[in-house]
């Protein structure tokens, strides 16, 4: 992704949630005449987290940006900030190539569920693009959106994952994202590139 201005950062903020955190960050960006190029924010169990790609027309140091945000925050002591340089040549982008699949896991809550599946996916070179987990009573539900490279065989991945889930009495499903697009959205499911089989 190309940013509007040449000096670009990735900003990550974590804090107990309260109104005004995004406003404080935006004011700080504005103070340096910067631009928010991209952002994603969520609140999980009362905790706020934000990731933003920011760019500035003139050189700005990460420390200056950090101090500006802290200066504008209602309670700076609760704010965790991490800033790194952004490049559109990030090696991370290549891991999102392939076809998008959705993994859903459900079963009794216990230690090590995420580890069990994440470890397997990492071993196969499968990237997790989005991950969401929640507890419902004594049940834990995990939903992951992953990119499966064209070299992978979906059936054997499904068989392996089913075996991993079975060992702890869980149910797992690995399905191409187009089924979810077709059922829920008005956009047309796209064919994608190299077909994972």
């Amino acid at each position: 992704m190309k940013t509007r201005y040449p000096t670009a950062f990735v900003l990550n903020v974590i804090a107990p949630d309260r109104p005004g955190i995004v406003a404080a960050v935006s004011k700080a960006v504005n103070a340096f005449d910067g631009n928010v190029d991209s952002c994603s924010q969520t609140v999980l169990a009362g905790y706020f987290t934000l990731i933003m790609v920011l760019s500035f027309p003139q050189p700005v140091e990460p420390e200056q940006l950090n101090d500006a945000i802290m200066g504008l925050a209602v309670d700076p002591s609760e704010l965790g900030i991490h800033i790194c340089r952004y490049t559109d040549q990030s090696p991370g982008a290549k891991w999102m190539e392939g076809e998008n699949f959705v993994i859903t896991v459900s079963g009794a809550d216990r230690d090590g569920i995420v580890l069990r599946f994440a470890d397997y996916l990492a071993d196969k070179g499968i990237n997790i693009n989005d991950l969401y987990g929640m507890t419902q009573g004594d049940q834990f539900i995990l939903v992951g959106q992953v990119s499966i490279p064209g070299r992978c065989d979906v059936r054997s991945l499904q068989a392996d994952l089913e075996q991993l889930a079975k060992e702890i009495g869980h149910t797992i499903r690995l399905q191409h994202e187009n089924i979810f697009v077709a059922i829920n959205q008005l956009r047309l499911p796209h064919a994608g590139g190299k077909t994972a089989r």
Binding site: Y132, I141, Q145, E177, F180, I183, N184
Partner: peptide
Amino acid sequence: MLRTDEILSTIEMLHAEYLD
């Protein structure tokens, strides 16, 4: 990205409500 509620309701349709 898909929304989590879309994913969960689809799973329900596919596996508990005979969507085939």
